[in-house]
Write a protein that binds this DNA or RNA. Structure first.
Length: 213
DNA sequence: TTCTAGATCGCCT
DNA sequence: GGCGATCTAGAAA
C-alpha cells in the first residue's frame, strides 16, 4: 500500500499532457467504468484553479473539502451538492488545483443496473447530468480521494469513440462571475443525446455525434 | 417544449 | 447562519 501511489502512469501522464481545457476535450469519448457499469464520456467542464472564480480553489482556497484538487493528476474527486454527487478528475501537478467535471455519459454496459439505481428513470434521462450519472453509476463519497483505476472508478483511453464534432459552450451553474460565467470551458460531443440540457431538435439520433469510423 | 420554483444537506465563514 | 459545479415536477403556450 505504500508503493504504487497515484494513478497508473499512462493516466497520470494524460492528465498532465496539456492545458486542462484541452484535456477536457480529449476526454470526450473515453470509457468510464465502475465495476460492471460503463459508459462513454460525452460532456465535460474544465475548472482552472486559482484564477477561476467558479472553481472551489479560486483565490487559492485550500480547505478540507477541496483538498483533492491540490493532489496529483488522476485523482477522483467526488463532491456533494445538496442531495447529489458530482464526479471530477484532477488534472495537472500537485498543488495546481485544476480539475475536470464529468457532466454527461453515454451508457455502454450495465444499463439495467443503472436504470435500477435511478429508480426506473430510463432513456436519455439516465445519465445526462452530473448528479444523474453519479446516481446511475452508484458513485458517492466513498469514491472520493481515490486514484482512477486504483478504486472502483476506472478510465480507459484506448477503448474510446471519436466525436465527429466538439462544441464549446459556457459552463452551467456559474452565475454572476462575469468573464468566467461566459468562458467556453464546457465541451460536449455535438448532437449526442446524453449531453445535459440537450434539446431534442439538436440531437443527432443517427450518429449520436460519433465518427462513423 | 420551455420556464419557474422548491427540495434539502454538508461545508464554509 | 448561509450558500452551492443540481434535479424534478408542475404549469403554460
Amino acid at each position: 500500500m505504500t508503493e504504487n501511489q497515484g494513478a497508473p502512469q499512462a493516466l497520470t501522464a494524460f492528465f498532465k499532457s496539456g492545458p486542462t481545457d484541452e484535456i477536457a476535450q480529449r476526454l470526450l469519448g473515453a470509457k468510464l467504468s465502475v465495476g460492471p457499469l460503463s459508459g462513454y464520456i460525452v460532456e465535460t467542464e474544465a475548472y482552472l484553479g486559482e484564477r477561476d472564480q467558479a472553481a472551489h480553489s479560486y483565490g487559492g482556497r485550500h480547505t478540507k473539502r477541496s483538498d483533492p484538487l491540490y493532489q496529483e493528476a488522476g485523482l477522483v474527486y467526488v463532491y456533494q451538492i445538496r442531495t447529489q454527487f458530482l464526479l471530477n478528475f484532477i488534472a495537472q501537478a500537485k498543488n495546481v488545483p485544476q480539475g475536470i467535471l464529468i457532466r454527461g455519459v453515454q451508457p455502454a454496459t450495465g444499463v439495467t443496473q443503472m436504470t435500477a439505481n435511478r429508480h426506473g428513470k430510463g432513456g436519455y434521462d439516465l445519465t445526462n447530468g452530473p448528479g444523474k450519472l453519479c446516481q446511475a453509476f452508484g458513485i458517492d463519497l466513498k469514491d472520493n480521494n481515490v486514484f482512477v483505476d486504483r478504486g472502483r472508478v476506472c478510465l480507459s483511453l484506448t477503448e474510446h469513440k471519436k466525436p465527429a464534432a466538439i462544441t464549446a459552450a459556457p459552463r452551467i451553474g456559474v452565475p454572476n462571475h462575469d468573464e468566467w460565467t461566459l468562458a467556453p470551458l464546457r465541451f460536449y460531443v455535438t448532437g449526442n443525446p446524453y449531453v445535459s440540457q440537450m434539446r431534442k431538435r439538436d440531437m443527432n439520433l443517427t450518429t449520436e455525434g460519433w465518427q462513423s469510423k
